[in-house]
């Protein structure tokens, strides 16, 4: 369930392109044809799925504060997180090279379709962004890191596929001359991003339907949660009241 939630969240709600503008450069440059867009998109999914878990391991066992404790108790105070940029980018660059070599050796046909894009990917912000977001959102386990990597890769793939399809069609419409090419792509992406914002309700909204389907056990769980919420609310209210009283007192 956790995995599913993170998976859909990283595809639709935190979509790399529409929510955080990552990988915009290659998104704009390589989206003129659907076939090339598919190639680059597949390469991005692949590389994200490899690098995010790898960088998760690095972060967990090398970079975080106290991560070096497995070397011995005297290393518990070390905090190497300032090195994370350089470590992440080095991992990504070497992984991309490695993936390129492996793919070339074992699947020449895949290499021919991905080949030219792989070196491009080392400098795609979406890849480094995936690792950095993984770090800043403190994803708890290796499995979730993998889910996150694959999910955001698919999100990026969807975005570039959609824009490429639109751009292929837009050739037949009369766009104002000064907007042709880059300008209209920007504006369409903006409109698509507004559309994607509506996915934001997917995980938070629609609670009523879920509750009806839930079994008694989860119902009682929900009740507990609700009662907790209520107690928190009352706690907040009492705080407010106190503050109000204080203010009145000071006014007096």
């Amino acid at each position: 369930m956790e995995h599913l939630e993170l998976f859909f969240k990283s595809i639709f709600i935190d979509n790399m392109v529409f929510a955080t503008f990552l990988g915009m450069c290659s998104y704009l440059a390589v989206s003129k044809k659907v076939t090339t867009a598919v190639g680059l998109g597949a390469a991005v999914i692949f590389v994200l799925a490899v690098t995010v878990p790898l960088n998760w391991l690095l972060d967990q066992y090398l970079l975080q504060e106290g991560a070096l404790v497995w070397l011995g108790p005297e290393y518990a105070d070390y905090d190497l997180s300032f090195l994370s940029f350089i470590m992440f980018i080095a991992t990504i660059a070497t992984m991309v090279q490695l993936v390129e070599i492996i793919v070339e050796k074992f699947s020449p046909s895949l290499y021919n379709s991905l080949g030219i894009f792989l070196p491009l990917i080392a400098v795609n912000c979406a890849i480094l962004g995936g690792s950095l977001f993984m770090q800043s959102r403190e994803i708890p386990s290796l499995g979730l890191a993998l889910t996150y990597g694959v999910g955001s890769g698919i999100g990026w793939f969807l975005a570039i596929l959609a824009i490429a399809a639109i751009r292929e069609k837009i050739r037949y419409s009369s766009v104002p001359p000064a907007l042709r090419g880059l300008g209209i792509t920007f504006i369409i992406t903006g409109l698509m991003a507004i559309g994607f914002m509506s996915f934001g309700g997917m995980l938070t909204g629609g609670d009523e339907e879920k509750k009806e389907k839930n079994t008694e056990a989860t119902l009682s769980n929900n009740l507990e949660k609700e009662s907790k919420v209520i107690t928190i609310d009352t706690a907040k209210k009492s705080e407010h009241d106190e503050v109000a009283v204080n203010i009145k007192e000071t006014q007096n």
Binding site: T185, F186, A193, I194, M197
Partner: peptide, 21 residues
């Protein structure tokens, strides 16, 4: 909201290219 950044840049491009054909 983030989508407006894209649209604003799109408009800047529009202005710039209209001025320099």
């Amino acid at each position: 909201l983030s989508p407006m950044a894209l649209i604003v840049v799109g408009l800047i491009i529009w202005v710039q290219r209209s001025r320099n054909q």
